[in-house]
Computed example of a mutant assay.
Amino acid sequence: MGGTEHLTVRREGATLILTLNRPEAKNALSLPMLVGLYDGWLEADADDRVRSIVLTGAGGAFCAGMDLKALAGKGMDGQEYRDRMTADPDLHWKAMLRHHRPRKPVVAAVEGYCVAGGTEILQGTDIRVAGESATFGLFEVKRGLFPIGGSTVRLPRQIPRTHALEMLLTGRPYSAAEAASIGLIGHVVPDGAALEKALVIAEQINACGPLAVEAVKASVYETAEMSEGDGLAAELKRGWPIFDTADAKEGSRAFAEKRAPVFRRA
């Protein structure tokens, strides 16, 4: 199981939990964190025993974005990580889910700060839970910067454009309640309970047919920008093969026999 000094990896049942682990810096992004994140996404997709992923942060924060000191050329230690970035200049975008989409569902468990790059990574996750004191926002314009992690493209597709533009153009913070009201997150829970709730959701996903879950996720993203007709045609191509799987037959048989299905990815 992978991980780095700024990214821990552990399994709980069929869920792989990736934890941003730089609490002294509110989990601001670093090279070790980015390399660990990308390796975590790859590990989850390569291991058929993993059916879901939970992304969270240590120390009561999710992610405060890029370390600005590091952006200025300081603090990004670790030659092995520099070598990884040199070998794959796109690695940081893959880590931040800008240029990579895991085939397994990703549930975000947010506590505390989830701002700038944190809010950008959030947009690459599938289901989002936050503690009631969590803070969201894209602060880049306040610093004369651009939210280049994908937010000018993704955010208006995920929430109403008026809310997306307000978040992008004002650089102001958003509470968890307001983030939920505009559709950025799906659940607000008491502080400290985000991971627990995310794991409950992950376990519900894990109980479903993995081939079906992955096909459904792929279809949602694949058809997002298609016309309705093209999307429905693409959905059939994704969906019909699922009915011919052994898992589909097992699901129907288990329902008839009033028992929990045993899915085998077959």
Results as ranks from 00 to 15, higher is better:
residue 262 V to E: 13
residue 176 A to S: 14
residue 47 D to N: 15
residue 266 A to F: 01
residue 260 A to H: 14
residue 190 P to A: 15
residue 233 A to M: 12
residue 32 P to R: 12
residue 248 A to C: 15
residue 118 G to K: 03
residue 11 R to K: 15
residue 202 A to V: 01
residue 34 L to K: 05
residue 5 E to C: 06
residue 225 E to P: 00
residue 203 E to T: 05
residue 110 V to H: 09
residue 167 M to E: 06
residue 136 F to S: 03
residue 142 K to C: 07
residue 21 N to V: 00
residue 238 R to A: 12
residue 77 D to Y: 14
residue 141 V to N: 05
residue 248 A to Q: 04
residue 109 A to D: 03
residue 81 Y to Q: 02
residue 215 A to C: 06
residue 164 A to K: 00
residue 162 T to S: 11
residue 238 R to W: 15
residue 89 P to V: 03
residue 262 V to C: 09
residue 30 S to K: 10
residue 4 T to Y: 04
residue 95 A to S: 07
residue 257 E to D: 12
residue 262 V to A: 15
residue 249 K to S: 13
residue 205 I to D: 09
residue 21 N to K: 13
residue 169 L to W: 05
residue 195 L to H: 11
residue 252 S to D: 12
residue 260 A to D: 09
residue 133 S to D: 14
residue 1 M to I: 05
residue 192 G to M: 09
residue 81 Y to P: 01
residue 70 A to T: 07
residue 160 P to L: 03
residue 93 W to E: 11
residue 132 E to Q: 14
residue 154 R to F: 01
residue 108 A to M: 08
residue 12 E to F: 10
residue 102 P to G: 04
residue 8 T to D: 11
residue 10 R to S: 13
residue 115 V to Q: 03
residue 59 G to M: 10
residue 206 N to A: 15
residue 29 L to D: 01
residue 9 V to N: 10
residue 254 A to H: 09
residue 102 P to A: 09
residue 251 G to C: 11
residue 98 R to C: 04
residue 236 L to T: 13
residue 22 R to W: 07
residue 14 A to I: 00
residue 224 A to F: 13
residue 15 T to W: 05
residue 238 R to T: 06
residue 243 F to G: 12
residue 75 G to W: 06
residue 66 M to P: 00
residue 44 A to V: 03
residue 45 D to A: 08
residue 111 E to W: 08
residue 245 T to A: 13
residue 264 R to V: 13
residue 118 G to Y: 01
residue 53 I to L: 10
residue 27 N to I: 05
residue 33 M to I: 04
residue 252 S to E: 14
residue 99 H to K: 15
residue 246 A to N: 08
residue 83 D to W: 07
residue 179 A to C: 07
residue 128 R to Y: 04
residue 206 N to G: 13
residue 235 E to D: 06
residue 66 M to E: 04
residue 203 E to Y: 02
residue 78 G to A: 08
residue 207 A to P: 05
residue 191 D to W: 08
residue 30 S to L: 11
residue 137 G to L: 05
residue 18 L to K: 02
residue 168 L to F: 04
residue 173 P to W: 12
residue 40 G to P: 01
residue 67 D to G: 07
residue 54 V to N: 01
residue 70 A to W: 01
residue 239 G to Y: 13
residue 35 V to G: 04
residue 122 L to H: 02
residue 17 I to N: 06
residue 135 T to Q: 13
residue 104 K to I: 00
residue 44 A to W: 10
residue 84 R to M: 04
